[in-house]
Design a protein around this nucleic acid. Sequence first.
DNA 1: ATGAAACCTGAGTCAATGTTCAAGTTCGCG
DNA 2: CGCGAACTTGAACATTGACTCAGGTTTCAT
Lengths: 212, 212
Amino acid sequence: MASRAETTAGSGDREPRTERGRKTLRRLLEAAAAEFGERGFHEAAINGITGRAGVALGTFYTYFESKEEVFRALVREMSRATRAHVAEAVKDAPDRLAAERLGLEAFIAFVRRHPELYRIIEEAQFVAQDAYREHYRSFADAYRRNLSAARSRGEISPGSGDVEETDEARSWALIGTSVFLGMRYGIWEQDLPPGRVAEIAIELVSEGLRRR
Amino acid sequence: MASRAETTAGSGDREPRTERGRKTLRRLLEAAAAEFGERGFHEAAINGITGRAGVALGTFYTYFESKEEVFRALVREMSRATRAHVAEAVKDAPDRLAAERLGLEAFIAFVRRHPELYRIIEEAQFVAQDAYREHYRSFADAYRRNLSAARSRGEISPGSGDVEETDEARSWALIGTSVFLGMRYGIWEQDLPPGRVAEIAIELVSEGLRRR
DNA sequence: ATGAAACCTGAGTCAATGTTCAAGTTCGCG
DNA sequence: CGCGAACTTGAACATTGACTCAGGTTTCAT
């Protein structure tokens, strides 16, 4: 059981050693994102990936053990990129409700620029369940911490009942909202600007539907 | 272009003419729901479907033109069943907010009893996009009408800005909430009863997060 | 009863494609 | 340079599973 040097946990087991290798790997990943994004996991062909990357079929297997492995690598990478993008957009928000709005707006805009990302992550539900759950689990955990902190600062209502339960369920409700608004207004029809969509959604979850 | 007698729009083109035929068709549909639900579209085998149904492989093609066609038939059927179940649960609700709560609770409970249904509809996103969009489009339309009617009765706040835009976006936000809560509390972990999940979510969208 | 339509059978066809591999080329260190 | 490691190549392999079809059985209207 010789151990193997691993810089980034869990990625492939073939870190390129030369400049040429790193470049090829990068091109393969980009090609895979395009191929999976356009055709979906099952329609996508390794052939198509290597074709787009401009390398021979066999080269793929120098860098990845299987079709599923590239796919997982992409899911991880895109999950990371999405979280980073939203975090960046939110970092100067004065309070939680402002952060919600900025985050949602940034998310929808991001989805518009990267529709392939959306498709790949959602399809992970059926191709790499664990990666999919991990993705939303980390989103939900971050959300929960944010809600909890805002509650402590008195920025948001504590809700009725157990606060842990409440924070967790609220997180999933808010994530669902983002994902579906991203699908409807980011991918399917772009008939409202992200800012307006975020405004409506944030008014919904901050003021509520009840007439006052 | 001779027209063909079609009772139910768009189904297969092979209505059975005998009692035996109707029974076989029913068994094939049930078997397909189980096979697709357990293994997903691509892992599912026609072989597996006919095996579960207790008929020979070729019999499948007496009733369906292809694997995709059964899948689409199932999506339509399950979409209908879900809407019917939620509509039934909601029919005696005194007002919109009560209806939201009853509907969400019923939805989560339904998902728990029929996880295969959930998987099939979500996978349609990648196997039969049009059927998937149709499913959520009809949900959203129903939602929009309900919100609009409630607004007219003065039960809910009109929100700021264009009311049509608001109703549409609110519909998708609420659907996203249901779908994600259904996934998290109906399928992944059943650590809260549907009633409690619905309570938290409905408090969120009726009272809002803002502290008062 | 009877014959035609409906239904069932399951071995065989066939195309698609993920993966392997032996042979060649390029890189970079000493 | 020069040599071993890294990298590339693409034909060949192997599996898989959707779909066909020619022939047999059952149903049911007359």
